[in-house]
Design a protein around this nucleic acid. Sequence first.
DNA 1: TTTTGTGCAAACAATTTGCATGAGA
DNA 2: TCTCATGCAAATTGTTTGCACAAAA
Lengths: 154, 154
Amino acid sequence: MADADVGDRFRAFLRERNLPITSQRLVIADLLLNAPGHLSAEDVTAQLGEKGHKFGLATVYRTLDLLVASGLVVERDFGEGFRRYEPAREVPHHYHLTCTVCGSVTEFFDERVEDIIRISARARGFVPAKHRLLVQGTCRTCRGAPHGSTRSVS
Amino acid sequence: MADADVGDRFRAFLRERNLPITSQRLVIADLLLNAPGHLSAEDVTAQLGEKGHKFGLATVYRTLDLLVASGLVVERDFGEGFRRYEPAREVPHHYHLTCTVCGSVTEFFDERVEDIIRISARARGFVPAKHRLLVQGTCRTCRGAPHGSTRSVS
DNA sequence: TTTTGTGCAAACAATTTGCATGAGA
DNA sequence: TCTCATGCAAATTGTTTGCACAAAA
């Protein structure tokens, strides 16, 4: 199931740095790079378990760090108290719509956000490097059956 | 040093809920409501220490929760692994420019961001409630003397 | 005097680290 | 073989909770 393309990119990254290409690294990379997205470390270990792999938690975290270092995966913090990881896409900037009822995450894009940031930041003598936009609300399916959310984003 | 206005609003909040108005609550509220902003729980205890107060950490956290519940203070998560708190302002939406060199935080506003969000979100059947925009980069004073950042925002 | 808070220490959850052993190059 | 990874458990960090004692209403 490995997308040969990204899988190979991770191998190349490891080889480049003279880091051993271990089976656990490949399995975790395969899992994460082909995941729909937004997995926590716990999600990763759970999914590994489903596939019959029982890697140490430390190994999972260390491999996640490697994947982030390779640029193939990006780390996200939705303010839940833990981190999530998702495959890096070529898409320049995608933003997140998080449903406070079901927790689902939808994405959207708009180049204008970037323009606004660049202009506003520069006006304050600030040179922007990266940015993140998080939106909380309710998704279509959850609308009409409201239920308390957990953490606030504001 | 208490801004009588906000200090009284917190007292009113407590009274309204029949919660005791204790000295530690007033001191912490005074500190936070008159702070320049973005204090962590640790910052708060440190500043309390400077003023000769030695409140338990738990008390600090519990009072922060109360202040957030009162709406006088808002909780922020900049992905540092802990939370920060700042006095709530009337200003509808202010966004943060964080300098990756010195950590300073500048704010900016732009109503257009909100419009873009509303439109993009609705197009996906999502009704936005709140949003946050974080920007990382370098501030004017740090430009020219670059140095590594810590945590990534992306 | 009854309720709720406070301080301390223990409990927690996510993540990191140290170290003996085991697998890649 | 030599280096680096793995797995486990212990350590850390930020935050929460339980409980005996103390202060507000």
